[in-house]
Amino acid sequence: MSLLERIAHPNQAKVWYGEIPIQSRYTVGITGERFFREIKDNGRLWGTRCPHCDLVYIPPRLYCERCFAHLEEWVEVPTTGRVHTFTVVHLDLDGNPLPEPRIIAFIQIDGTDGGLIHDLGEVDPEEVCIGMCVEAVFKDPAERRGSITDIRYFRPVG
């Protein structure tokens, strides 16, 4: 163990370089197909409801994680919600300063028992507060790809 401590330069230790050469192709799943199609085609959010547990899941689920019921009742939910909590991100993954800090929030979607993680926009970090009412801002239909980034960000309402 002490060998590395006595080496002045890391390259003095004999190493062999390798990588795991894979990429992942994730299917969005049975409920994901419909969820993302509604976002892409209509700029709307849909969830699924468990009638036994009286829960509305967003993102939608095929099954209720609490009672295991197959969820077949789709409900359109508002594109508005409240900031449950947020953070202001200053560095990128490599530790470099971002040109502009990003505000990342957990937005509880109105009328549901869940929410989405997303950017907040059209607002300064010092103006954001927990409990703030926000709404989704979608990209133009032509730019949408059926992805969570079809929502540009959430912005304060009113």
């Binding site: 095929l62 009672c67 295991f68």
Partner: peptide, 25 residues
Amino acid sequence: RAQETAKELAWEAASKALESCEMTL
């Protein structure tokens, strides 16, 4: 290649197993 997500596949098998013995979660 399944369209289902991994979770959805797991749920399908698990719920069928429970149904087979008339048990619930």
